[in-house]
Design a protein around this nucleic acid. Structure first.
Lengths: 123, 123
DNA sequence: CTGAGTGTACTAGTATAGATAGTACACCTG
DNA sequence: CAGGTGTACTATCTATACTAGTACACTCAG
C-alpha cells in the first residue's frame, strides 16, 4: 500500500464513500498535512483497484469539501484545513446523532457507554 | 395521523428504514409500551400511503429485532423491551461512531460540542 | 359455520444509484 | 514534443427500493 492513508474496503457502504471517509479521517487526525501531494486519479484507481471514474468521484468530492486543492496539469494537494460549515451536512449530522442515540439504547447501552465510545473514537 | 408513533418521511433514506427508526425511537422512549397493539400491515400501508409489501418489510424487521411480537390471526403487539445484543449491529454502531467523530471534527465541532449534542439527543 | 381481518409468502415490474468501461480534451512539466 | 494531470462525457451492468397483485393459513366476532 503506497497510499498516504489507510482504507479497508468492506461491503455495505458505497465504495467512494468509504474512501472519502478514510481520507477525511487522515486529514482531521493530522496524518495528512496541508501541502502534501495527493495521489492522482489514475494512481488512486490502480492502488485501490477501482474504476478511474469512481476515483474521480472521490477526488471531486474531496475538492468540493475543501480538503483537497486542484493544481491543473500537476495534480491535487492537501488543502489548509478549515471547518466546512455546510448547513446541509450539519443537518445530516444532527440526524445521524438522533439515530445513533436510539440505536445505542436499543442495543442496551447507557448514556455513559455511548459518551465513552465517542471519546474513544475522537482520539 | 392515527398511528401510535410519529414519522416524517423525507427523501434520502430508504422508506422502510425511516419507519423502523421511528418505531424504535417510540419504543425506547416509552411512547410505545409493552402490550400496546401495533397497526396491522394493511392499516400501516394505508396510513403511511405506502405499499403493503413495504409495510410488511417494516413489520418483519421489527419482529426480527424483538420490538414486536406476532399474534397469528390477531395482529402484532409491542414486545417487552430487552436489549438486542446483536454482534453485527454492535459492529455497525462502532463504525457509525467513528464516522460521526470524523464528520463532526471536519465540521469544526469540538469534542464537548459533540458530547452535548449526544446528551441532548438521548433525552 | 361464515366472513372479515390478520401475518406471511410468493411472483413481477419499474426506477434509481453504485460501479464499471471506454474515450476525449485542455492543462502543465520535463 | 511526450507523458502525466484534472475533468467531462456516454454507455452498460447490477443491486436495491418500491410498487403491484395474488394467495394461503390463522383467529375472532357475528
Amino acid at each position: 500500500m503506497r497510499l498516504p492513508f489507510s482504507v479497508d474496503i468492506r461491503p455495505g457502504r458505497p465504495l467512494h464513500d468509504q474512501v472519502v471517509f478514510a481520507v477525511t479521517k487522515a486529514v482531521v487526525t493530522g496524518q495528512l498535512a496541508a501541502g502534501d501531494a495527493f495521489p492522482s486519479v489514475r494512481a488512486l484507481s490502480q492502488e485501490l483497484r477501482i474504476n478511474p471514474n469512481t476515483a474521480q468521484k472521490i477526488v471531486g468530492t474531496l475538492i468540493e469539501r475543501g480538503l483537497l486543492e486542484p493544481r491543473p496539469g500537476i495534480g491535487t494537494v492537501v488543502a489548509a484545513w478549515q471547518p466546512a460549515a455546510n448547513p446541509a451536512r450539519r443537518a445530516s449530522l444532527a440526524s445521524q446523532i438522533d439515530r445513533l442515540a436510539v440505536e445505542a439504547r436499543q442495543l442496551g447501552m447507557t448514556l455513559s457507554d455511548l459518551l465513552d465510545a465517542i471519546r474513544r473514537a475522537w482520539k
